[in-house]
Write a protein that binds this DNA or RNA. Sequence first.
DNA 1: TCATTTGTGACTAAACATTTC
DNA 2: AGAAATGTTTAGTCACAAATG
Lengths: 467, 467
Amino acid sequence: MPVNSFVDYPMSWKPEKDLLRRPIYQSLAAKLEEDIMNGFLSPDTQLPPQRELADYLDINFTTVTKAYKIAEQRGLVYAVTGRGTFVSPTLKGVDAVSAKEVPRNIIDLAPVSSFEHTNSRIVECAKKTLDKRYAEQLMNYYNPYGMPHQIQAGIYWLKQFGIDTDPAHTIISSGAQNGIAISLFGLFEPGDRIAVESFSYSNFLELAKRYGIRLVSIECDHMGMLPGELDAACKKSRIKGIFLMPSCSNPTSVVTTPRRRSALAAVIEHHNMIVIEDDAYAFISLDGDTRFGNPLQTLIPERTVYIASVSKPICSGLRTAYMVFPDRFKTKIESASTDLNIKTSSLDADVVTEAILSGAAYDIMKVKLKLAKQANAIYSDIFDPLACIGHPNSLFRWLPIKPVKDFHELEHQMLERGLKIFHSARFLAGPSQPEQYLRVSLTAARDLKELRRGLTLLRDTLKELGL
Amino acid sequence: MPVNSFVDYPMSWKPEKDLLRRPIYQSLAAKLEEDIMNGFLSPDTQLPPQRELADYLDINFTTVTKAYKIAEQRGLVYAVTGRGTFVSPTLKGVDAVSAKEVPRNIIDLAPVSSFEHTNSRIVECAKKTLDKRYAEQLMNYYNPYGMPHQIQAGIYWLKQFGIDTDPAHTIISSGAQNGIAISLFGLFEPGDRIAVESFSYSNFLELAKRYGIRLVSIECDHMGMLPGELDAACKKSRIKGIFLMPSCSNPTSVVTTPRRRSALAAVIEHHNMIVIEDDAYAFISLDGDTRFGNPLQTLIPERTVYIASVSKPICSGLRTAYMVFPDRFKTKIESASTDLNIKTSSLDADVVTEAILSGAAYDIMKVKLKLAKQANAIYSDIFDPLACIGHPNSLFRWLPIKPVKDFHELEHQMLERGLKIFHSARFLAGPSQPEQYLRVSLTAARDLKELRRGLTLLRDTLKELGL
DNA sequence: TCATTTGTGACTAAACATTTC
DNA sequence: AGAAATGTTTAGTCACAAATG
C-alpha cells in the first residue's frame, strides 16, 4: 500500500485507525459524528471517497458505505453517486422552526403564523359552541376523526378551494403538521423515497428525516417543480411519494402554474406516486381576480392526500385540519391517526365548525387576505417589487441575498440588530444550492407598523453587511 | 441436492421458485405477505428455517433472513433465535383499538374510556375559560407546549400522584398517546429495542412497531414485570428503553408493587435505559386507604419520561396530557413535539387548567373513582372475585378464559350475542402466550345497569361456549 | 464519447448467540 | 453438558449506475 500518497495528498478526514473497534461501521460512524459535531469537519467539506478511506483503514469499502449511510440517516452528511460524500450544510437539531414569543425589542420575521387580529371573533364562536345542545358530547371519547356535522362543515369549507369530497373520504386531524405525520405514518415506510422541491417546508423535511424517509430534492423554477426533473429522478430510483404545496410553496412563495400542475400530475400518475398536498395557503388566491389553478387533488384524487389546515385562513391556535383521501388510503390513514393521537380535539373542531357555519370564518378570511395584501404592499415599498417572485398575496417573501458562508452567523447578526429571520439553508432538502435567500414572514410582527420598521431594518442591515 | 427430502417432509411454506424475481428478498417477502393475508398460512404456523428454505430455493440463507425480516417489520411474522420463525397471531391492521360508538343493541365492553357522566362540569369550565381576560391568546400560534399558567396547573395536579417537577421539565402534549409518540420520536430511532410487558398497551405496541422499534416482550407475574427477566433480556442485547404503566397496567390491571418498582428501577439504571411511564390510571389509587407505591419517575427521574393524561381522571375528549422529563431530554422532546403537532391546543389545555384550579377536576375525579368502585363491585357480583387479580379500582378487568384457536372468531361470536369485547391476543407484544384472557372494560357501557347486563351476558356466553 | 471516479444495492460468507434436546 | 438447529450480525464480493472531465 503506497502509504506516502496519503501524506502527499491528505484526505479531508483521517480517523485514527487504532480507535476503530468492532463493529467497525458503527464506531466509524460514531467518530464521524463526533468530528462533525465538534466542528472539525465544516459544512460541505467533501469526505474521502469510500474506497480511499477503506484503503487507508484497511477495510472493505462497503463497510465505509455503511458508516456513511448511518451518518446520512442522522442528517450529518449527504452523498451523490459519482460526486462524493459531503458534510451536510444543515445540521439537525439546529433548525426546529417553532414559534416562541420573542422579546419586545426584537421584531419577528421568522415564523409564518397568521395575523392574530381576528381572534376575538373566534372566542365568540367558541362561546356559541358551548351553548349547543350537544356541547357535552364534545368532551367524550367518541368520533376520533371528527363528528359528522364537523366533517360536513369541513366539506363545505373545502368547496371554495375547488375540493369536492364526502364524509367517507374526509377526516379531521390535529392541524396540518399532524395530518402530514399521519400521512407519512400511514402510507409510507422508513426507507421510502419522497420527492420534494429543492427548497421545501422545513417542518416536513425534519419530520420525514426523523421517520427515515429518503428525501429526493427536485429542481424548481418560478413556475413550480420541473416535471422533467421529477421524471428523471423517478427513472433513477423508485420514488413512492411527493410533497407539494402548489397553491403557494413554503418557503419560496412560488405558485405552481396550471399547466405545470397538469404536467406534474401526469408524471406522478405515470410513476404511480402518492401525493401529499398541503394547501395551507389556498385562501390567498380567493380574491376574485386571479385564477391560479386547481389543487392536484382535483386532477389525481386517487393518489392524493389533501390537507387543509384552518391555521392560516381562520385561526392558528385551534388544532384542526381537514384531510381528504381516496378510498384505498382510508384504513391506513385512520389507523395512523389512532396511533399518533387516539383522537383529535372535538372542541377545537367544533369552534371551527361554528365559525364556518356562522359565516365568521369567511369574514375572518377576508380580513386576513386584506392584511396580507397590505403587508405585501409594504414589502414592495421597501424591496424591489420586480425582484419579487411568487404569489402576490403570500404571507412570506423569498428574498435573494448574496451567498454567505455561515448561515447561523448571519441569522445571529440579524438577531443582534433586532430581527429574527430564517435563512434559506433551513429549508434545504438536499445538497447546498448556489443561491441563498431569506424567508421574510409578513405575519409575525405585532402589527403592520412594526412590520414596516422590521423590513426597513432588514433592508438596511443587508446593505450594511454587503448582501 | 437431495430433492426428495423436501417431498418426504414437506415444508410448511413452499413458495414457487419460478415466481421469484430480483431482488429476491423483496419478492420473497411479498409472496410471504400474500400467502399470510390470503390465509394460506395461519397464525403460529412455523415457517421453514432460513437455511432450509434457502436450500430449497437455491439461494443464500441470509437472503431469506432479509425476507423474513421485512415480514417481521410488517408485523406478519415473529422470529425467535434457536426456535424458528412463525406467522404472527395478531395481524396488523385488524386490531386498531379505536373508539367508535356501537349500535344501541350492542353493549360495549371494549374501549377503556372514562365514565362520561361528568362532562357537563367540563362544559361549565370551558365557558369560564372563555370569559378570561386572556381568552384571545388561546387562539394564537404561541406557547406550542402549553402556556405558563397551564404548565403550573399541571405541576400542581401532578403533585397528588407524587410527582415533583418544574416548568422547565414539564410540557403539555395532545393526550397521552401523542405524548408517547413524541417520546418515541424524540428519544428513539428505528431499530432500537424497547422492553414491554408480555401483554401490553396495544396502541403503544402498534405505534412502536410502525416506527420500527423492536419490542422485547418480558415475562410478568401478578406483581408486575419480573426484574430478573428484564435483566436477562438486557444482557442478551442492548435494550434502549422500557414502556411501563406501574400504577395499573393496561390490559392486565396489575399494579407493580413498591418492592418490584425498586428492583426494576435498579435494573433499568444498571442498563442505562430510558423509561416511558404512562400513568394514565394514577387516580384510581387515590382513595386514602391504600398505598401502591410511587411512580418510577420519583425513583429514577433522570431517565424517565412521565406521561399523565387527563383522559381518565378528568375528561377523555380534551386532548391534554402532562409530560415530565429530565433536562437532557428537553430539546429532543420539544423538537419531536414540533415535528408531530407544531403545537398543542391551548384551548383544551385551558379548560383542563380551569377545571384543576377551580377544584372541579378533583370533584370529577372523586365521582369517577366512586363509579369505578361501583363497577368493580358489580363485576365481583358476577365473576369470582377470588380469581380477580390487579388493582381493585381498575377501569377494566382481565378475565382468564380457556384458550381458543381463533380469537377473531370469539370476538365475533361475542358481537353476535351483543357484546363488544377485546381478546388478549390484541395486546400481545411477542409470541403467543399459553394463557388467554378477555379485557373487560367497565367504563364503556352507557351506565352501570347496562354494565351489569353486559357482564351477566358475558358470563353466560362464556359458559355457553365452554370457556 | 468514453474512461474514470464514486456511490448504491443485492447477494454471499463467516462468526456468533440462543434454544432445544 | 454438549451437540444440533435456528435466527442475528457484521463484513465482504460484485455488478451496476451516475457524475465528471
